[in-house]
Computed example of a mutant assay.
Amino acid sequence: MKALWLSIGLHVVLLAVLLSGDFSTMPKPLPTPSAQQAKPIEAVAIDKSQLDKVVNKLKKEKADARAAEKRRLENIERRAAEAKQRRAKEEARIKKLEQQRKKKEQEKIKADNAAKAAKAKAAKAEKLRKQKEQEKQKADEAAAAARSKRIKEEQAAKKAEELRKKKKAEAEAKRKKELEEKKRKEREAKERAQQEALIAEQMAAEMASRNQARRQQMLSEIDRFSALITQTINRNMIKDRSTMAGKTCKLTISLAPSGFVTQVQVGQGDRVVCEAAKTAIYKAGTLPVSKDPEVFKEMRKIAVTVVPEF
């Protein structure tokens, strides 16, 4: 193809050179024509004929080249159309194969599911068969056991009747003996109840006496710690005789087992004394408390009257 276009180019250049001259009019003869002057005229005629041949040849080659190019383009378009058709056919074939593959895959899934269902059904049937077989075996064993039990029960009933008659006689004798024993125990129980009532009455009196003594002891202990607490408050109070003399304040103090003050409630009394006492309590932080759990339980929340001492 490259050589063809090179040839066409060379011919076009040659044609342009040839056409640049004026071949339509013949050259005028000289006044005295000679043999030498006649030769160029003949040469021009020959050149024009050759030029026509070249031009015709070039036209033919150009026409041939155009025809060849047209055929080449038509061939390319034909091959492109064929390739497009082949590609469309291939895509259709691939699509069909994909559809077939999906169909086979779905069929395989259905077959697998059917196989699983059949296997499960078979397993269920086998399980049911074994269950019925076991139930039959258990029923047979139960029937045999029932027969054996019935025979044993009949034998046991016979022995029981004999034993009942024997025990009835023994029970009658035992009943008489138990009746006598019961009367004896009732007499003893009555006497024992009277003794126990007497002892309980004595113990209750003694317990009441002890509780009274313990209560008195606890109250005395609480009073002692109340005095200790008021002394502690007085030690920590900032007192002013001119404003506090002859005045009091009632306080309710909540305490932890360690004596730590958890809360102070101000009651009736002089405001100045109450504020000073409350400040003194929190300043002390902990107050004297009894180690005795019962005493502390009574004084966990203790009421004291603070009288400033000067």
Rank of each mutant, 00 (worst) to 15 (best):
L58A: 12
K59I: 12
K59S: 13
E61Q: 07
K62L: 15
K62D: 09
A63M: 10
D64F: 08
D64H: 07
A65E: 00
A65I: 00
R66M: 14
R66H: 11
A67S: 09
A68H: 11
E69F: 15
K70E: 05
R71G: 05
R72W: 15
E74R: 01
N75D: 15
E77V: 05
E77R: 05
R78F: 11
R79I: 06
R79E: 08
A80C: 06
A80Y: 12
E82Q: 11
A83W: 08
K84Y: 10
R86E: 06
K89I: 02
E90D: 03
E91V: 07
A92K: 07
R93S: 04
I94D: 07
I94N: 06
I94L: 10
L97G: 01
E98R: 02
E98M: 02
Q99F: 08
Q99W: 09
R101N: 07
K102I: 05
K103A: 01
Q106A: 04
E107P: 00
K108S: 11
D112F: 12
D112G: 04
N113C: 03
K116Y: 09
K116P: 01
A122R: 08
A122P: 08
A123N: 08
A123T: 05
E126C: 02
E126Y: 11
R129V: 05
K130I: 09
Q131S: 14
E133V: 02
Q134N: 15
Q134I: 13
E135Q: 15
K136M: 08
K136E: 12
Q137S: 14
K138C: 11
A139E: 15
E141Q: 13
E141N: 13
A142E: 10
A142D: 10
A143D: 06
A144H: 09
R150K: 11
I151L: 04
K152N: 05
E153A: 01
E154G: 05
E154C: 01
E154Q: 05
Q155K: 05
Q155C: 02
A156S: 00
A157I: 00
K158N: 06
K158A: 02
K159G: 01
K159C: 00
A160Q: 05
E161P: 04
